[in-house]
Write a protein that binds this DNA or RNA. Sequence first.
DNA 1: CACTTGATCTCAATCGTTTTCGCCGATCGT
DNA 2: ACGATCGGCGAAAACGATTGAGATCAAGTG
Lengths: 336, 336
Amino acid sequence: MVSLKDISVRCGVSVATVSKALNGHKDVSAATREKLLKAAKEMGYFPNSQARALKTNRTHNLGVMFLDEAGSGLTHEFFAKLLNSFKTKAESLGYDITFISRSMGKNKMSTYEHCKYRNVDGVIIACTDFTSQDVYEVVNGDIPIVTIDHIFDCRTAVMSNNEKGMQKLIEYVASMGHTQIGYIQGNKSSVADKRLAGFCKACINRGINVNNDWIVSGDYHNPDKTYELTKKLLSQEDRPTCLFMPDDYSAIGGYNAIKDLGMSIPEDISVVGYDGIAYSQLISPRLTTYAQDTAKIGEIAAAQLIELIENPQTTFTEVITVEGTLVQGSSVAKIN
Amino acid sequence: MVSLKDISVRCGVSVATVSKALNGHKDVSAATREKLLKAAKEMGYFPNSQARALKTNRTHNLGVMFLDEAGSGLTHEFFAKLLNSFKTKAESLGYDITFISRSMGKNKMSTYEHCKYRNVDGVIIACTDFTSQDVYEVVNGDIPIVTIDHIFDCRTAVMSNNEKGMQKLIEYVASMGHTQIGYIQGNKSSVADKRLAGFCKACINRGINVNNDWIVSGDYHNPDKTYELTKKLLSQEDRPTCLFMPDDYSAIGGYNAIKDLGMSIPEDISVVGYDGIAYSQLISPRLTTYAQDTAKIGEIAAAQLIELIENPQTTFTEVITVEGTLVQGSSVAKIN
DNA sequence: CACTTGATCTCAATCGTTTTCGCCGATCGT
DNA sequence: ACGATCGGCGAAAACGATTGAGATCAAGTG
C-alpha cells in the first residue's frame, strides 16, 4: 500500500506537509496542495485506517449490537431493513459497520469490552434484551449510543410512534364497526407497554369497552405461540369480532389458527397486524396493519449517532419518534 | 484504556516482556508470566486492535460483500441466516465482521479499495452480481476470499448442492406420479444454470419428457414476477400438473396467481419451491421444498476463509457443496 | 578458571499517521 | 532600514503494540 511517505519522497516534501495537504489544513500553499492531491490520486493513496485510528482515537467505525442468541435478529425483516438503511446512511457519512457481540475467540469479553477493543466510535443498540447486563454496561459507558425502540435516561432513542400506530388501527377498525376487540401482546418490553397504552387509550376515546379477557400476552415474532393463543381466544363462547396480533409475522400463526378453527378472515373474524413487512401483503387476505417506516428509523438513527460522535458538545439527547402509515388490507370486515 | 505500558510499570518489567508473556512467547519465565497475566486480567487489559494491526498487518476483521443496491440482501432470509452463522463461527474464532461496500463518504473508493483501507484479513462474497467490476477487482486481488454460490477459478467456494436438490425434488414429484412438470427459473446465474441442469438430468433419468414451453425464466425473490409467469403458464390449454418455483419466497406469488385463477393447490396444480425458508411452512398448504442448510454453509465459509488466512501455504482451493434436505409439505398431490 | 550455553529479560526500531513547535525567508509597518 | 509578523514548510514526538538483536546472569563443561 502506498503511504504518505511514498508521496512525500516522490514530491520532495515532508510527510507532515502531505498529511496536512490531504487533510485540508491551512498552512500549506495552494500550489503544493494541488501537486500533492494529484500525486495521491495518481498513486492510489488511501490512508491506513489503523494508523489514523491509533493517532486520533477515531475509527470511523460503528458497532451494531443485535440480539444473536436466537439468531432471529437478522432474519427479522424489521431489523434487517433497519440495519440496511442504517448501514447505507452511515456509509454515506464515511462510517463502516461492525457487529459487536459478547464472545470473541478464546478470551471472553463483554460487549462493552468488545467495543473498547475495536474502538468503535459509537454503537446502535437494537433487537436486544434491554434488561441484560451487557446492555447495561454499554449504556453506562462513555461511548455514544443510540437505541432503537427503547428509552434510557440521557441517551437518544429512535422509535416508531407506537401509540399513534395503535390509535390509527383502532380508529380504522372502529370505523368499520368493531367494538369487540381482542389483543395478543408481544413480549414484555417498553414497546409492548406503549402499544397497550395506545390501544387502551384509543379504545377509551372511542368509547369502546376494553375487555381484559381478550387481552393476552404472547411473544413477538412467534407464529406458533400466536397460533395457540389465537385458537384459545377464539374458542371461547364470548369472543371478539376483531383480533390484534403482536406483529405481522406472528399473524401468520393467527391466520392458520383461524383456518384450522374452520373460520374465515374477515367474514368470521377480522385480523390486524403490526409492522408492515412484505409478507403481510402477500398472504391472503392481505393483512391490515401499521407499517413502520424502518428505512427512516435506520437513517435517523445513523444520522443521530454520527451527530453525537462528531459534535460531542451539542449532546442533546432526544427521543425521536417516526411516523408510520396505516396499510388497509382486506383482513378487516365492515360490520354493523 | 489500559495499555501494555501500564502493566509494565505496575509489574516493574519492560513492555516487551509483557507483550511476550501475553502472546505466549517462550522467552519469559513461568513466574513472571503468571504475574503479568494476573495483572492484565485485574487491570482489564485488552490489546489495542489498531496498534496491533498496524504492526502485524492483521486486523482479525472479515469483510462481507453483500448486494446493497436493491437493499434486498439482508431481507433475504437465506442470506440473513447465512450471515448469521458466518458471523457466529467467525466470532468464535476471534474475527469480527465488517460490511464492505462501494461508497464510503465523500471520497469514492471501489469495494477492493475499501477492503484495503480497512485492512480486512479476508472477504466473503455473497448475494452479489458476480459479473460486476467490483467483484472482479476483489477476486483478482490478493485478499483471501470465499464465495457463496458462485465458482471462480482458484478461489474456494461454498454452495449448496443445487443439482442434487433438484434431483431430489424431481424424484419426489415423480414418485407422486407427476410427469408434466413446469419450471420457472431464477435470474441468469450459475445457480440457475446448475438447477436447470439438475432438473433436466433428473427428468431424463426418470424418463420424463422435458417440455421447453414449460420452462420459463423469471427472477429469484420476486413474487410479482412469479405471479405473472405462473398465471401465464397455467392459462395455457396444455399445462403441467406440477410447477417448480424459483424459490420459496417467489412461490408466494405463485400461490396467489393460482388462487386468482380459481385453482387450488394441490388439487388442480402441485407446487414446489426451493430454499426452505420459515414462511414456506407457515403458508397453506405447506410448501414442498428443498431446504438449504444455510447454517452449515455460513459456518463452513467462515472456517474456510479463516483457514485460508491463517495457513496461506496450504492454499488449497476447494469447491465445497453442502447437502440440503427435502421438505415434504402438502403442496404436491398424488396423481396417477 | 575461562568459556560456552541457555534462560530471561530489555533496547530500540518499526508500522503509518497526526500534530505541535520551531525555523526560515519574505513582507509589513513605522 | 530594522524589528515584527506571517505564510509555508519540516523535524520530531507521539499513539500502542511487536520483534529481533543484544544484555545479563547463573549454571554447566572441560
